[in-house]
Design a protein around this nucleic acid. Structure first.
Lengths: 240, 240
DNA sequence: GTTATATAGTTGTCTATACATGTATACACG
DNA sequence: CGTGTATACATGTATAGACAACTATATAAC
């Protein structure tokens, strides 16, 4: 099973072996893992080496140690999706709602200075500005404005964009979405928001801004979404 | 420095000692940490014990190990903090503001049904309810209500609570904070919020609710914070 | 000067062992 | 019937030592 002459460390081989068995379903959530001594005897290695493998998996959350009882396969992490960047569509589906979109405009224009700053490009560089109404179960829930540099997305069509912007970026352009810097604030609805979301003057909205990055540092979109405050809560699961 | 007769493990004492020196600025980002052998000789402990302390800090991202060279204090912990659960104090310090707190009340009472549900306890089980005004640079920024079961925090004093609730939970109670489920919404300020935050009728607030868990599944606090919308944005860095 | 070579110091891996501490069960005692 | 107690077994902590792999520097050879 384990190759002591391999250049790969023994603890790492054992770690991968256990990881694979969990992924294959040979070890199921809630099940008891063989004890450290059993592993040590079975493979004729030191218990400390076994511990190094198990500790790594435990700190990843794949295993759960319990003093005096044993080590168990962790239960499935339920709502992982909400921890990372989600598109409006993904968010709505996760809530059991049917997303749809109405594009108000899709146009090329020179970047305004504060947009250019955020996107890390020069003022008046060409960008795409897309303004959309986002609906959940056919009811307007949010208005969303997306700014993205033409230098990155090239000749993306309105079709490419509306099918799935993120898939287009990752699959067709071959870029990797790494992270996003997000800000959330509360304000009163603007006249345009009042009109598109069927609100009245003095109603609050939840305002979400996000700068999304590819390859660790290059911003490729700045998106601003205004949600009806009475119908939308932002939900997130935070670690540690 | 380290107490070998303490019930606290030696590796844990060393870990906290190094952690403190980083927080105090006695060890600065980029700086080289003393070598494992130096620590082992200085405190007359085994090198493996030193490694356990350093490994824990490295897996937290506080230290960076480099084979053949040494172990270094990690750069910018600032942006990392925003990815996970933060206390008001941590949040404010990361923004360069000075946090302070005014406790309005700190009282024991039976849990209301919807609070009991969230905390996973029975209605009328004893809980602590703490209502505080949170200030940044001595200006009221938010009002915060915390609910926590007496069954978990026991005889925590107002002093324990206000120094650092999370440190009390982790260090004194020996629990591990694993994650939090957070919701953020936008509403208009309530009369109490108008008074404490010096707002006027019709002003919006950013409302943040969080259920914080220990040991993966046990909720230990439900906290509701209302921020002045004109002075606060919620910032978070999202992965992938 | 440039290039090997030795050397010392670092973290990485691994062993073998010992005792502490927590959990569960079987069993004798009252 | 309940209750300690012994026992077995689990993980947790800690030790002392060995060698491997990597980095940097000094030194010798060319």
């Amino acid at each position: 099973m384990l190759d002591k002459n391999s250049p790969l460390p023994i603890y790492y081989q054992l770690e991968q072996s256990i990881r694979t068995m969990i992924e294959n379903g040979q070890l199921k959530p809630g099940e008891l893992l063989p004890s450290e001594r059993e592993y040590a005897e079975k493979y004729d290695i030191s218990r400390m080496t076994v511990r190094q493998a198990i500790n790594n998996l435990a700190s990843e959350g794949l295993l759960v140690r319990q003093k005096g009882k044993g080590t168990f396969i962790a239960e499935q992490k339920i709502e992982q999706a909400l921890q990372g960047i989600t598109s409006f569509s993904e968010d709505m589906k996760a809530r059991g709602l049917e997303p749809s979109t109405e594009i108000i405009h899709y146009q090329e224009e020179p970047a305004e200075i504060h947009i250019a700053e955020k996107l890390g490009i020069n003022p008046d560089d060409p960008i795409l500005e897309i303004y959309r109404i986002r609906l959940a179960d056919h009811v307007p829930l949010a208005v969303e404005t997306t700014f993205t540099p033409k230098a990155i997305v090239g000749n993306m069509t309105e079709q490419d964009f509306s099918e799935s912007f993120y898939h287009y970026v990752e699959d067709t352009l071959g870029l990797t979405i790494t992270h996003g810097d997000q800000e959330i604030e509360s304000t009163l609805a603007s006249p345009a928001e009042i009109e598109h979301l069927h609100l009245k003057k003095g109603d609050p909205v939840l305002l979400l801004h996000r700068l999304t990055y590819v390859s660790g540092k290059q911003p490729f979109e700045y998106v601003r979404t205004a949600y009806r405050a009475d119908r939308y809560k932002y939900k997130i699961q935070l670690p540690r």
